[in-house]
Write a protein that binds this DNA or RNA. Structure first.
Lengths: 325, 325
DNA sequence: ACACGATATGTAAGCGGTTGCTGTATCACG
DNA sequence: CGTGATACAGCAACCGCTTACATATCGTGT
């Protein structure tokens, strides 16, 4: 319709400048009239680029992942990519199938590895696809990584609890024992406690799941012994569970016990008493992962990098008697 | 490596059965050894199928969208698809670009249209891509739709409030005036009130945003007049805001006022007092949309269908004096 | 023993773009 | 006016796969 070859059209669409303005105008006209859209598959076949980035999370439920996803989505769009989400497939076979599909179609993949997962990174390595790992530092395995500096925030939170609670009365109620974050938080907690003079902290560190139910269960199990304790929870939901169970026991934070959550999901500021918590910049984790991925795609031979995001205590009502209720 | 032509390989990979078992075995061996993965672009070029479904939401933040997305993701995987998410682009130009990218790569698109958006559906129509609309019934425009039956749940909730509050003291604190859901909820609320004998309900229906801040603002503006009222909020966050502001005023639900939220996000059962709310099956909205999309892809000439999902009142503490605190 | 149908595999033509190379005006310069 | 540089635009190969069609092989009924 524009009276030019497809080669010229291609040049007009992609490398503006290589073609005479007059011709380009004609082509643009034709494109508008015809409603022409380049076929993405054909483009991909030539360029091996889809402009789609994948993000694989263990789950996409709840404030935690929602926030992370939001950061990732925004950053992806900013960089001209689309985002393909994938919560990890339940069965191995499915994962195989799903994974391979995504691998071929995606320019790069950000995977959250909250727990060890040999299979996945072997597969990733073999697929030779740009990949960044979220939540585990696998730089030495050759992967870019985005991690959270759990230690700093945990230390802050623990120190904060220790201002009003004796070391012997502090507890860390964590998530799954295998979870990287929980491990790091537990370690930093223990260290802070020892520094404050605690002798044996082993039984003050417990593991469960990242759920309200687990927090509730633990606190209910403590019974009246809960009074006067300081609790650092593995995440905000656990903290909420603890507060609910405490309430059932006629105890409330911060007067009868101090509670600090983790993650600073929106939950923390929506409940009453508002929940002290360690802020994890979830959205930035997402955006940093996508950014790292895009950089790796542009520069495939760069040495693997790890970006570490800071955490910090946000003191609210649940841990601080001086704050107004 | 298997000593066969690419045609045979293709047949082995796709149409099992067309090739002799002995040959197929050789091919499978070779595939395993070589780590062969079919090129998705080339496949797409031939078949015009990517096995990727797009879902476009106004936002992907918060429990509401998180839950919806989860349902969609699960269903997509179940049906052998991947999910490309896209929160609507801020600028028109960006939307154009992003939209067109997705259009070419995606087998179908589910869009949430919470407010009128001529441009989008015109574009969709012109792109001739399978499309289902979430939250607006556009069957007469030729689109499959997934909607929520807001009326039933709203009526239930209003009736419930009316058991302990006079019609003249009931309020609907909604979201944006243009929002389809809010409109429907407001209409059903008004109807129920009139049926109960209210004469003028106009000033008892107010609009704002779907946020805690708006609920708080409204309730603060009411001041002591809040006492003894029944509030149906446009969503759970607004309800929370109302309860927070009430708390500031020294009032609390359910003794001083009754509050019912909407959506039944996890928030509702996590706060204290637990929040009565109208359950909207968010995950099912997502999965229904994906299912409808897949069906349309399989059967392109089918008449447009609308699936409507029921809502129902979940009575918890915030509206019911008889429930234990 | 022959024709014929069924079954198994190969051949090659695209799918719709991108891009290196080539051809041809156009222009400045000597 | 000849010559070479320059700027555009076209030609055609190719990306890796699917699939209609052609070919080869084998079994079977008569």
């Amino acid at each position: 319709m524009a009276g030019v070859s497809t080669a010229t059209v291609s040049r007009v669409v992609n490398n503006a400048g290589l073609v005479a303005p007059h011709t380009a105008a004609k082509v643009h006209d034709a494109i508008k009239h015809l409603g022409y859209r380049p076929n993405r598959f054909a483009q991909g076949l030539m360029t091996s680029k889809s402009h789609v980035l994948g993000i694989a999370l263990p789950d996409i439920h709840g404030e935690f992942y929602s926030e992370l996803l939001r950061g990732a989505d925004a950053e992806a769009r900013r960089l001209g990519y689309h985002l393909l989400v994938s919560s990890e497939a339940p069965t191995r076979a499915e994962q195989e199938r799903a994974g391979s599909l995504a691998f071929g179609l995606v320019d790069g993949l950000a995977v959250m590895l909250a727990e060890p997962n040999e299979a996945l990174w072997r597969e990733a390595k073999s697929a030779a696809i740009p990949l960044v790992v979220i939540d585990a530092d696998l730089r030495d395995k050759g992967f870019d990584s985005v991690v959270v500096d759990n230690a700093t925030g945990t230390r802050e939170a623990t120190t904060h609890l220790l201002t009003s609670v004796a070391p012997g009365r502090c507890y860390f109620v964590g998530g799954p024992k295998e979870n990287f974050d929980t491990q790091q938080r537990a370690a930093a907690f223990k260290e802070s406690l020892h520094k404050a003079g605690a002798t044996d902290s082993a039984e003050h560190i417990v593991h469960g799941t990242y759920s309200v139910a687990w927090g509730q269960q633990w606190a209910a199990g403590m019974g009246r012994r809960l009074k006067g304790t300081g609790v650092l929870a593995g995440n905000d939901e656990i903290a909420l569970g603890v507060m609910h169970a405490a309430h059932e026991l006629g105890l409330s934070a911060p007067s009868d016990l101090r509670v600090v959550g983790f993650d600073d999901t929106r939950l923390a500021s929506l409940v009453r008493p508002t929940l002290s918590t360690v802020r994890v910049p979830l959205a930035e984790v997402g955006s940093a992962a996508i950014r790292a991925l895009a950089e790796r795609i542009d520069e495939p031979d760069r040495a693997p990098r790890t970006v570490s995001l800071a955490t910090k205590l946000i003191a609210r009502q649940s841990s601080d008697v001086s704050k107004k209720q």
